[in-house]
């Protein structure tokens, strides 16, 4: 970070003469101190992973989850101030529920991201509030199959509905990242928090185009674990827990639901991650760490 606010950082509603909102920039600082969170969108699903720093040995292992379920097909991971993240999740659940109540169908990942982006942005406008101290990664799988109206009974013709435009596909995996300013984009791979630079560098090496030949959901789980381990900085934080969730389509392992990655698979991914780190360490002399500083602004 560059300068101090010199009076222009006292409230959200005040711009600096060079057009900056310092409160938002300070919020970004809060995120930069949070445990790394990443999301990977691949051809058959989405993986969310966080590096949960263990701040005390007195905390129960596995408790205080940092990735939340928002609707059956939607999950949110975040980095930064945990209470802000909790509130973000509450609001996301309300939005998803309100959509369901009105339209009797699940909200799409894009629509949720749009609404939450709007919500975060509103916290950059007023004197009386401060921006969210989090960057949130929203992952979801919008059904590729036709969804009924919630509660409907009966069915159309057994030969299927006529007149569909068959050239178009619908639904699929989606990933969005929303920053404290309210800015949000769709991503193939997203990273935020402490280790984001290293994580982004690793994400860029993956084939996430979504096309055939791109990595699969299972590979993405292993890559996500490895990236969190790579991004973890032993010298600053001793211990962390890897928390991972995934969402596949109806024909995949989670049947369209946002769920925690099964323990066995997660442990396997962690084992591979540790192994990869060890072999990296051995090669340290030949291959220097790439991309570490490249992304810095």
């Amino acid at each position: 970070m560059t300068s101090i606010g010199t009076g222009y950082d006292l409230a959200n509603s005040i711009f600096s003469p060079d057009g900056r909102n310092f409160q938002v920039e300070y919020a970004v600082k809060a995120v930069e101190n949070g445990g790394t969170a990443i999301g990977i969108r691949c051809k058959d699903g989405v993986v969310l992973a966080v590096e949960k720093i263990i701040t005390s040995k007195l905390l129960k292992p596995g408790a205080n989850k940092r990735i939340a379920t928002v609707d059956r097909h939607l999950g949110v991971a975040y980095s930064g101030m945990v209470p802000d993240g909790r509130h973000f999740v509450d609001r996301a659940r309300d939005e998803a529920r309100a959509w369901r109540d009105t339209f009797k169908t699940p909200i799409s990942t894009a629509d949720l991201a749009s609404r939450m982006g709007g919500y975060m942005q509103a916290y950059t406008l007023y004197q009386s509030v401060r921006p969210f101290g989090i960057t949130a990664i929203v992952g979801g799988f919008d059904s590729r199959e036709e969804a009924p109206v919630d509660g409907e009974v009966g069915s159309g013709p057994s030969c299927g509905a006529g007149g569909k435009v068959s050239s178009k596909t619908h639904g699929g995996p989606f990933l969005y990242m929303i920053e404290p300013s309210g800015l949000y984009w769709g991503y193939y791979g997203a990273a935020t928090g402490k280790g984001r630079q290293a994580a982004k560098a690793e994400l860029e090496k993956l084939d996430l185009s979504g096309a055939e030949g791109g990595i699969t959901l299972e590979q993405a789980v292993k890559e996500a674990a490895r990236i969190i381990y790579v991004a973890h900085d032993d010298s600053k934080d001793k211990e962390f827990e890897l928390e991972m969730t995934w969402i596949s389509g109806a024909d995949g392992p989670t049947k369209g639901l946002h769920q925690e990655v099964p323990k066995a698979l997660r442990e396997e991914a962690e084992r591979l991650a540790k192994k990869a780190l060890e072999s990296d360490d051995e090669d340290e002399g030949t291959e220097e760490k790439k991309g570490e500083e490249k992304m810095e602004e």
Binding site: G62, K65, A68, T69, R93, R100, E152, V153, Q259, K263
Partner: peptide, 24 residues
């Protein structure tokens, strides 16, 4: 149909809290 929708929402509420435990 009203109850069906209501129970579906109840099941989603359950997934907020129990998804992780249940998986475990």
């Amino acid at each position: 149909q009203f109850l069906d929708r209501h129970l579906k929402e109840l099941a989603i509420d359950e997934a907020y809290e129990h998804n992780d435990d249940q998986q475990q």
